[in-house]
Amino acid sequence: MSEKKMVKFIIQRQDSENAAPYEETFEVPYRPNMNVISALMEIRKNPVDASGKATTPIAWDMNCLEEVCGACSMVINGKPRQSCSALVDQLEQPIRLAPMKTFPVVRDLQVDRSRMFDALKKVKAWIPIDGTYDLGPGPRMPENKRQWAYELSKCMTCGVCLEACPNVNSKSDFIGAQPLSQVRLFNAHPTGAMNKAERLEAIMGDGGLVNCGNSQNCVQSCPKGIPLTTSIAALNRDTTIQSFRRFFGSDHQ
């Protein structure tokens, strides 16, 4: 027990939304199977940096601790991913943590992911079934289609696909892959399909679908393995048809 194994962390910190970021180094005693969050918790217990200087505890977000809520995303050794499923044993040391800069930093590793929820509202990523009377059961969904759509429904709005995209940045208002793929999900649903045109029109607006430049980083980075670029290409086809319908036809709703 004399020589305790330590894990070194270099963490990018930021005291408030508009403050300048700075780095601090920490050393955390190694435990088998530890993940990045357990190390952050360890630092929180005793917020002293590697040189022995006392500091403030690090702020970060977390919730499910099993890679389904998306809250704990951060940039770990240069890659955006979930800190709850980032195992220290599988990471190169020193481990570098930074916030996902695509989002406004609230404090330290904590970011404001509102833009994704706003985008979901913008593209109407829901199925409107509320009425003033009982509408009865909707059309059924074929089982094979349900299985396929289930893959799209795994999105946890973690923001990794936005962080990875070269076209989602401060110079552009591109909404990114995450809300787009949800449009495909809700348009695939037999009841949701009744509002298909509305959602397509929404993603044909500014900052929408056409801002995709096909770097395909999103599909390579999505922790849930969602076929984002297939969704985007499918929506490209749907919006092409929608635009022709609107221009040449009359029944385009």
Partner: peptide
Amino acid sequence: FTAKNNTSRFGFFRNWMF
């Protein structure tokens, strides 16, 4: 010029093509 290229962080084939 509205893209922020990131091939150093994401060195995938399609990102290089981008």
